[in-house]
Amino acid sequence: MNPTASETSDYSQPPIRWLGEADCCDPAQVGGKAGNLGLLARKYPVPAGFCLAADALARHRQADYQASILLAYATLEGLVGEPEPSVAVRSSGVDEDGSTASFAGQYETFLNVRGGGGVLAAVERCLQSAFAPRVLDYRLQNDLNSTEIRLAVLVQQLVPADVSAVIFSANPINGRRDEIVITASWGLGESVVGGTVTPDTYTIRHHSAAHITAQISDKERMTVPAPAGTTEVPVPRLLRRQRTLTDSQLLEMAQMAIALEDEMGYAVDLECAWHRGKLFLLQCRPITTALNKGHG
């Protein structure tokens, strides 16, 4: 498919909204997750990505948004700096009130998708999973303009993480506000999130390099990108007990957590990835466990 301007014409608002741009922050249009990431991307190193806004998906013919996606994916190549970059394609439901309170509207995630055709297929599958069987056939066969369809799709660079980490801007175990806790393991975050690996735990007290304690664990498994998405593999023996993060990496992460906590006004729980010495912010949520009042 060869996107041209004529194919992508005939709509009032561009269907593609880039993370970090002003039009990619409205949860009513891009869904809770993308809206949140869109806001973060304006100040923090969120992996590059774009969104098909709910309105656009509702209003436009398949051929139109497909051309837009291909064009956007080509732009993403330039942003990421490699041909056919690996992306994650996620559908994100948009609540009628546009609330960001919940991510329950996320229907489907396709990891490690490569190439324009792959992205198009993943977007289609996101839509199918969201609409089928109720309106899918109807939507595909008609130039549908339905107010019922409230779905956004996020296409975002899948950072092939060297190390994945979760940062708590306050210690969720003992409730201390002056302790930042970072858990980290090799590869993509799935093994950490899925609990198949015991990650390293670093505690940074008083936000100072002098007060870092590290608990290095035996990290037996890791998730890596694979042709059909991701796969979990054993960690080579010599790396299992190796420390995943240096002090300077830990401090950089702590600084980001402090800045986000200040900005959000609450203690945050961040998902991060390191790739080629660069820190990426993947997600930011409030810490839901009880914390001590005040610092210290």
Binding site: P160, D162, W186, G187, V224, P236, L239, Q242
Partner: peptide, 10 residues
């Protein structure tokens, strides 16, 4: 190529 850098370096 898509493995963690630590693995590739090793």
């Amino acid at each position: 190529a898509s493995y963690p850098e630590a693995v590739r370096m090793q």
